[in-house]
């Protein structure tokens, strides 16, 4: 993997609170920080409700962050007010959604769905150019140009997800947030979509934030992975490192729960349960670097213990 160590996206101390009543607040994201380098795929995993989707949506400004900031190529994204600047940023960052049935407008033709971004950003000067660009995109994602005049209901789930990908690609983005792009698809179709995403990354030098709960697929596609638990990032490491040497007990528990297509392994699998009360509570945990690139949320006491654990291996 050739990852140039140029930071494309810097998220620091991001918080997203939702008010659910007069006095109750849900802390969906509670102060998380990470960087995404240019050209890499950053995976974000965790159970439902841990805030991984909210993180993606907050980065792209579908929600206004409660606190913290997000920098894209060194520029603060959330401070921008001017609509001209916003537009420029929106073009660089696109999103692919989870549900291919709900994320395409049923009343628009595929042509209009894909070209919406072109229209908004004024990227095609003539109708011919617009049509040509849409047909190019359709073929790029493995559909036919004849599909342009059809409506979303005429397509299967996998095909719709391809339309969603074509729409994201239309404006030549540099960074794509993929929020569980394959969860709703059949196994054989999942592999098709993942392969397509990988190819596109190579051809266009894209950077991905890949959000999912299917850990074996995340490992397969990601260069680095962050594990979230209750709105916090508990561990972050290169994907091989994370699977080989998980340190945080939650990560261990999560990894031990993945069923693998191997009966022998499954017969001998030991599941580890996560008990949040096992942590040292003498001080607030901080995000610390155990070995270069391997970060864990821990107290200073735990920090020493984790270091020893790694040395043993």
């Amino acid at each position: 993997m050739t990852v140039t160590q140029e930071k494309l996206l810097e998220v620091s101390n991001l918080k997203q609170y939702f008010k659910t009543g007069r006095h109750s607040v849900v802390k969906a994201i509670d102060g998380i920080s990470f960087d995404i380098y240019k050209g890499e795929t950053f995976g974000l995993v965790g159970e439902s409700g841990c805030g991984k989707s909210t993180t993606g949506r907050t980065i792209i400004r579908l929600y206004d962050a409660t606190d913290g900031n997000v920098k894209f190529k060194g520029e603060d994204v959330h401070g921008k007010k001017n609509s001209q600047d916003l537009k420029k940023f929106n073009q660089k960052m696109q999103m692919i959604f989870q549900d291919p049935y709900a994320s395409l407008n049923p009343r628009m033709t595929v042509m209009d769905i894909i070209a919406e971004g072109l229209d908004v950003h004024g990227l095609s000067k003539t109708p011919q150019e617009r049509k040509q660009r849409v047909e190019e995109l359709l073929e790029r994602v493995g559909l036919n140009k004849e599909h342009a005049n059809r409506y979303p209901h005429e397509f299967s789930g996998g095909q719709r997800q391809r339309i969603g990908i074509a729409r994201a690609l239309a404006v030549d983005p540099e960074f794509i947030i993929a929020d569980e792009p394959i969860s709703a698809l059949d196994v054989s179709i999942q592999a098709q979509v993942v392969n397509l995403l990988k190819e596109l990354q190579e051809d266009h030098g894209l950077t991905y934030l890949f959000i999912a709960h299917d850990l074996s697929m995340v490992k397969y596609i990601s260069d680095r992975i962050g594990v979230m638990y209750f709105g916090k990032l508990v561990e972050l490491a290169d994907s091989d490192e994370l699977y080989k040497n998980p340190l945080h007990p939650y990560t261990k528990s999560l990894l031990s729960a993945i069923p693998l297509p191997d009966p022998d392994y499954e017969r001998n699998r030991q599941r580890v349960e996560y008990d949040p009360s096992q942590h040292d509570t003498s001080e607030e945990p901080e995000f610390r670097e155990i070995t270069p690139g391997h970060w864990v949320s821990c107290t200073s006491k735990e920090f020493e213990a984790y270091k020893q654990e790694l040395n043993k291996n």
Binding site: Q159, V187, S188, A191, Y220, P261, D262
Partner: peptide
């Protein structure tokens, strides 16, 4: 074969998954 090949295992190193083409 296709079903088994389209799922990554934790130690898979191939560059791409074997997808079953078509639908």
């Amino acid at each position: 074969w296709g079903l088994l090949g389209s799922m990554p295992t934790l130690d898979s190193t191939e560059d791409s998954l074997i997808a079953i083409p078509g639908s």
